[in-house]
C-alpha cells in the first residue's frame, strides 16, 4: 500500500514537472518582447529592465528560477492588473471556482447515477428512453450555448415574468451571491458530466445484472430493492468512480465558459480575459495552478479507488 502511494506520488510530481517545463518552453516560444510597448525605451533602461526581471541571464538559469518560483506558488505579476501578483489574483478567484465546481460535480454525480440506475432498471421502457435522450442532449449541446439559452429563457424571461406577476425573481441573471445564484451555473456546468455518468452507470449496471451471482440472488428470492442496493450497485459503481478524475478536469475547464456567461469572478473568468489581453504570466500561472490542482485531484481519486475496490492490484498498477 505504502509503496503504491509513494509510486503514485512520484508520478504526480513527474507530471507536474513536465507541465511546468512545457509551460516554460511554450512561453519562451511566444513571439515578441515584453518591453516593446507604446513607449520607446533607451538601451540602458531596457537593459535595466532585463536585469530586473532576470531576462539577461541564460535560458537555463531563467528556467531553474522559473521552476523554483513555480514550486513555491510564485507566478510573477500580472501584466494587465499591474503590480498584482498572479498568485494573489488566483487566491481570490479560486474559492468561487471551487464552489461552482463542487456543486456542479455533486449534482452531476447524484443526478447522473439516479438517471443511469432508472434507465438500467427500466430498460426498454419510456423511462429508459427519456433518460438516454437527456444524456444525449447533455453531451451534444456545448455549455456556452446551453448556458446562454437557459440564462435568457429562465433567468431573464421567466424570472422577469414571475417578478412582474408575483413580485419575486425565480432565478437571478448573473453573479454568485445568494443560494439562488448558485442554481443555474452548476446545472449548466454539470450537465455534460451528468450525461457521461448516466450512460456509464446504465451500461455498468446492465452488465452486472447479467452476472451469475445476481441470478442466484434473484432465484433465492431476494427482493428487488435489496438486490439492487446490496449487490448490484456496489459492483456497478466502481467503473463509474474511475472517471471522476477526468470529469473533475472537464468540469474545471468547463468553468471557463460558465463563469463568463454568468459573470462569476472565478479563475475561469480571469483566464479567458487574460487570453484575450495576452497577459502571459496570468495565463501561465492559471495553467500551472489548474494543472497542479487536477493532478492532485487525480492522485486522490486513484488512491481512494484502491480503498473502495479490494481487487485492485496495488503493486502492478499498470494502465
Amino acid at each position: 500500500m505504502l509503496r503504491y502511494i509513494v509510486q503514485r506520488l512520484g508520478f504526480a510530481v513527474l507530471t507536474l514537472w513536465v507541465l511546468i517545463t512545457l509551460t516554460f518552453v511554450l512561453m519562451q516560444l511566444l513571439p515578441g518582447d515584453p518591453f516593446v510597448g507604446d513607449r520607446a525605451l533607451t538601451d540602458s533602461v531596457k537593459n535595466a529592465l532585463y536585469a530586473k526581471y532576470g531576462l539577461d541571464q541564460p535560458v537555463y538559469i531563467q528556467y531553474l528560477k522559473y521552476l523554483g518560483n513555480a514550486v513555491q506558488g510564485d507566478f510573477g505579476d500580472s501584466l494587465i492588473y499591474t503590480g498584482r501578483p498572479v498568485s494573489t489574483i488566483l487566491e481570490e478567484a479560486f474559492p468561487f471556482s471551487i464552489d461552482l465546481g463542487i456543486r456542479a460535480l455533486v449534482f452531476a454525480v447524484f443526478a447522473g447515477m439516479l438517471l443511469g440506475i432508472t434507465a438500467a432498471l427500466k430498460k426498454g421502457t419510456g423511462w429508459d428512453t427519456v433518460s438516454m435522450i437527456i444524456a444525449a442532449i447533455g453531451i451534444s449541446v456545448p455549455s456556452f450555448i446551453l448556458g446562454s439559452l437557459l440564462q435568457y429563457f429562465l433567468a431573464l424571461k421567466l424570472s422577469g415574468f414571475t417578478n412582474t406577476q408575483f413580485g419575486f425573481r425565480l432565478l437571478p441573471i448573473s453573479g454568485w451571491a445568494s443560494e439562488q445564484h448558485k442554481i443555474l451555473p452548476p446545472f449548466v456546468l454539470g450537465l455534460s458530466s451528468l450525461a457521461i455518468i448516466a450512460r456509464m452507470m446504465r451500461s455498468s449496471l446492465l452488465e452486472v445484472a447479467g452476472q451469475e451471482y445476481v441470478k442466484t440472488a434473484k432465484a433465492r428470492g431476494l427482493s428487488m430493492p435489496l438486490l439492487v442496493t446490496r449487490h448490484m450497485l456496489r459492483n456497478a459503481i466502481l467503473p463509474v468512480l474511475t472517471i471522476l478524475g477526468p470529469l473533475t478536469a472537464s468540469v474545471l475547464t468547463g468553468a471557463f465558459v460558465v463563469e463568463n456567461i454568468f459573470n462569476i469572478p472565478g479563475m475561469g473568468k480571469y483566464f479567458v480575459s487574460s487570453v484575450q489581453t495576452n497577459d502571459y504570466p496570468m495565463i501561465a500561472g492559471t495553467t500551472l495552478f489548474l494543472g497542479a490542482f487536477l493532478i492532485g485531484a487525480n492522485l486522490l481519486v486513484d488512491l481512494s479507488y484502491t480503498l473502495v475496490d479490494p481487487n485492485i492490484k496495488l503493486y502492478k498498477a499498470k494502465v
Binding site: 508520478f11 516560444l29 478536469a249 494543472g291 487536477l294
Partner: peptide
C-alpha cells in the same frame, strides 16, 4: 511508452490546447 503516455494523459488536455493555441 505507457509511462510517457500516462504523463500526457495526466496533464489536462484543454489547458495544453489553449497554451498551444496562444503560442
Amino acid at each position: 511508452m505507457m509511462r510517457v503516455l500516462e504523463v500526457v494523459v495526466a496533464i489536462p488536455y484543454m489547458i495544453i490546447v489553449i497554451l498551444l493555441m496562444i503560442v
